[in-house]
Nucleic acid binder design. Structure first.
Length: 224
DNA sequence: TGCCAGGCCGGGT
DNA sequence: ACCCGGCATGGC
């Protein structure tokens, strides 16, 4: 089976094993943006606490965030970890939004997919994964979001080399999947959920993987 | 108790 | 073009 076919078959196996995840867990596009920045190298549970604090303080709003001094914002998001640098990163995004788009997220999201990605990526503190999460889950435009779990899982299933770059992995996925926003959202969400449960950094190769029964039935016979 | 979490930046080779 | 230290809280 060629790698491109594996990419599609693996999605089917994940969806069958875990069901739809319905990501991103947020109520508004701005909340997605904030969550994407706060979850950088951080447990989502801690991010939830920080977002609760922001809600309570009425800070899920571009103008309110723009007025907030970074030192005070940092205290509010403290449970998310790296709180001083993340406060600065949130401010950097909001400053771009106000400066270039009048503080209007819809105006930013009206850009073409590639322009939007570039604009968001230009903010200091927003790298490729955070940018793509914003493009896909906040703006609803078709890109594949790559993260640590994606690389680890695809590598363990023989679809990429250990030294594959972000761009390598993103191209592999995008070149072999339809331009379907719903599917792209679901695929990334499934990879994160399976990764959280049983594909941690120190875990043995796919030990106890719930996909194993499906694999043994020959449904995805190439996987290990 | 230590290791890990849905990265990214800036300075040094 | 890579490589590495720093950033920080809370869960298991």
């Amino acid at each position: 089976m060629r790698t491109g076919e594996k990419v599609r078959a693996f999605y089917d196996a994940l969806l069958k094993a875990y069901g739809p995840q319905g990501w991103w867990p947020a109520e508004t596009p701005l909340e997605v943006v904030i969550g994407a920045i706060l979850t950088q190298n951080t447990n989502w549970k801690n991010v939830e606490r920080a977002i609760e604090n922001l809600k309570r303080e009425g800070l899920l709003d571009p103008q309110a965030l723009a007025r907030m001094p970074p030192e005070r914002l940092a205290e509010v998001i403290r449970p998310a970890g790296y709180y001083r640098i993340k406060a600065r990163r949130l401010k950097n995004f909001i400053e771009m939004l106000v400066r270039d788009f009048g503080g209007d997220l819809d105006a930013l999201f009206a850009l073409s997919t590639s322009r939007l990605r570039e604009a968001v990526l230009a903010v200091s503190g927003i790298g490729p994964e955070t940018a793509d999460s914003i493009v896909l889950y906040a703006a609803g435009k078709p890109v594949f979001v790559v993260d640590a779990y994606t690389a680890r899982i695809l590598c363990r299933h023989g679809m990429i080399e250990a030294d594959a770059t972000y761009e390598d992995i993103q191209s592999l996925m995008q070149d072999n999947l339809p331009d379907d926003v719903g599917m792209l959202k679901e695929y990334h969400a499934l990879l994160v959920e399976v990764g959280k449960r049983q594909c941690r950094k120190a875990a043995p190769l796919c030990a106890g993987c719930p996909l194993q029964p499906l694999l043994e039935q020959g449904r995805v016979a190439w996987a290990t």
